[in-house]
């Protein structure tokens, strides 16, 4: 049992850093999606990748790196806030745009008609 614990303690920082890195890369991917997608509503989907997967992976990674339980609790609070406020602000944005009369692009979009808007 102690061997397992020793292995875990040696492995934990590496796993944590790797998860933080994966989360940061997902944030870059989400940003690339926000830059590429053609209209506001589709950009909203790309931004939600950052809000959910990137944040979760980075915070789990940081929790594995954390030196004490207090840090883990704080990270959990950050995660909870992000998950409670993220969909609310996304919905508020989509609802405001829809109420203001912004029409979404519908139908299959290729590279030709994308990026021009």
């Amino acid at each position: 049992m102690t061997e397992v614990m020793e292995f875990w303690n040696a492995f934990r920082p590496a796993l944590g850093s790797a998860l933080v890195l994966v989360g940061a890369v997902l944030a870059v991917i989400g940003t690339v999606g926000v830059l590429r997608f053609p209209d506001f509503y589709t950009r909203l989907h790309a931004a939600s990748v950052t809000d959910t997967a990137a944040a979760t992976l980075a915070i789990v990674g940081m929790a594995l790196l954390a030196p004490s339980l207090a840090i883990v609790v704080k990270l959990a609070v950050v995660w909870l806030f992000l998950f409670l406020t993220g969909p609310t602000s996304s919905h508020a944005l989509a609802n405001a745009a829809h109420t203001a009369g912004l029409q979404p692009m519908i139908g299959r979009l290729g590279e030709d008609d994308g990026g021009s808007q």
Partner: peptide, 13 residues
């Protein structure tokens, strides 16, 4: 507004 909101999430991380 979407960009600023998403920017905020990244700044938190």
């Amino acid at each position: 507004v979407l960009a600023v909101n998403s920017l905020g999430t990244k700044i938190i991380l």
